[in-house]
Each structure stands twice: as structure tokens, then as C-alpha cells.
Amino acid sequence: MHIIQSPADAFCLPVSPVQQLQLVNELTECADSSLTVATTLWEETRTQLLYLLPSEEEHLSEELTTYLHHLTCNAEYVIRLDDSLFLALTILSDSGQGFYLLFPFSATFTGAAELIAMAEPSGF
């Protein structure tokens, strides 16, 4: 499992360079594609992204399971980055704190199938 605290850290995730660029484009879209503005926004709202690897689903903490349940019930949006990766967002508090989840098509956590079914294609 990889947790990042800044959109720029997406370049450190173990995904292809094309997926990294597409992910950064999605994460910075609300900030006029500015990595600096998006990073500041993430810091102010304590937003983070979790990349859930398939082999890790069997050993999820109770806290993470609670976050995933919240996400599946309250997804702001779900985007299909490509045929293998999805990006979902949920808002956790009135302050705008967000929680992104990057997960594979093979995900089996409760609600994954519903998130995949509602995914829209990436705009990039």
C-alpha cells in the first residue's frame, strides 16, 4: 500500500510513466493543472491518496476498511484511468479533506465492483 500526501508524489508510485502522468493530470485538474496549487490545496485540506495493491486487500486495517466503506457509499466520482486502474474520490469533512483511492480492476474489497461500474473514462 502506498499513501501519498502530495499530487507530485504520484510520480513515485509503482505504475507506468503514462499512468503517472494521467494520474497527475486528474489530481491537478481542479487547480488549473498547477501542481503547485494542487499541492497547497492538499496541504490545507489534509488530502491524501492511497494506492491499494491487489495483494494487500486481505490485510486491511480497521481504519482503512472504514475509509473504503465511506468511499463506496459516498464517492464524489470514479474515473477509469485505463483498462487496469481506477481513481475514486470521497470528501471526508466540511473542511474539504479528501481521500483518493487508486485501485486496480482486480480489486475485491466490498464495494469495488460498484465503483468500477460507475467509473467514467478519464478526460486525459
Rank of each mutant, 00 (worst) to 15 (best):
C12H: 15
C12R: 15
R80G: 07
M1R: 06
S84N: 14
T28E: 04
T45D: 01
T39P: 01
A10T: 02
L64I: 12
L41D: 13
L101N: 02
V24W: 07
D82E: 10
F109H: 05
R80H: 06
A8G: 06
A113K: 14
L41T: 12
Y77Q: 12
S61W: 06
I91M: 07
F99G: 01
V78P: 03
L71D: 02
F86G: 01
Y77N: 08
F109Q: 06
D9P: 04
F105L: 13
C12I: 11
V18R: 14
Y100A: 01
D82N: 15
E120F: 10
C12V: 11
T72A: 03
L23H: 05
S93N: 12
A31W: 09
T65I: 06
T90P: 02
Y51V: 05
E120Q: 15
T39D: 10
S34R: 06
S6D: 10
E56I: 05
L35K: 06
I91V: 15
L27D: 00
C30W: 12
G96Y: 12
M1S: 10
E56K: 09
F11A: 11
L60I: 08
E56R: 10
T65Q: 14
T108S: 13
A31T: 09
L89M: 07
S34I: 06
E58Y: 11
S93G: 12
L23G: 03
A112G: 00
Y77H: 14
D94P: 08
E76G: 04
E26K: 07
L71E: 03
P14D: 11
E26L: 11
Y51T: 04
L41Y: 10
T47N: 00
E26A: 11
E58P: 03
R46N: 11
V18N: 11
E62N: 13
L53T: 13
S33Q: 15
H70A: 07
S84A: 13
L87S: 03
L92T: 00
L53S: 12
I116W: 00
D9L: 11
Y100F: 10
S122C: 15
V37C: 03
E29V: 09
S95C: 11
R80D: 03
I3Y: 13
D9G: 08
D32C: 08
A112W: 01
L64F: 12
L35H: 05
F109I: 04
G123L: 13
F109W: 06
S34Y: 08
G123H: 15
W42G: 00
Y67I: 04
A8Q: 10
A117L: 01
F99Y: 11
G111F: 00
S6K: 08
F109G: 03
Y77L: 07
L21W: 12
P7S: 04
T66W: 07
H59K: 14
